[in-house]
Design a protein around this nucleic acid. Structure first.
Length: 100
DNA sequence: AGTCTGACGGGAT
DNA sequence: TATCCCGCCAGAC
């Protein structure tokens, strides 16, 4: 069951335009699985490091990157977003960067 | 079968 | 605005 859902989630995330972001909850809902926000994170975590899927365009409902500020993962995601023109100053992402 | 763990979310305080 | 708390769901043990 979750196997097909993984594919839907991968596809949905890959549809996020450059310079835009979506929350875990929005991804889940867009996939037809509201309430599966947590699972979206689980799926992204399983992606290989060399994936083409833009996992960095997925943030939490608070408009923040869901990694500890001092972690390596946090900086990787932040750099990728900044490179696409997404303002992450102050640790938060403005609503104007949202796809929805 | 019971319990714990997350790249989560939302309401209460 | 900042915590806290609880509900949520699949996986690992």
């Amino acid at each position: 069951m979750t196997d097909k859902l993984d594919l839907i989630i991968w596809f949905t995330v890959s549809q996020i335009p450059v310079g835009k972001v979506m929350t875990y909850g929005q991804i889940a809902k867009a996939c037809g699985y509201p309430g599966y926000a947590r699972y979206v994170g689980t799926v992204l975590k399983k992606l290989p490091s060399d994936t083409d899927i833009p996992w960095h365009r997925v943030i939490n409902a608070q408009g923040r990157i869901s990694f500890p500020f001092d972690s390596e993962a946090y900086h990787r995601q932040r750099e990728r977003l900044l490179a696409e023109g997404v303002n992450v100053e102050n640790g938060r992402i403005t609503l104007r960067h949202y796809q929805y």
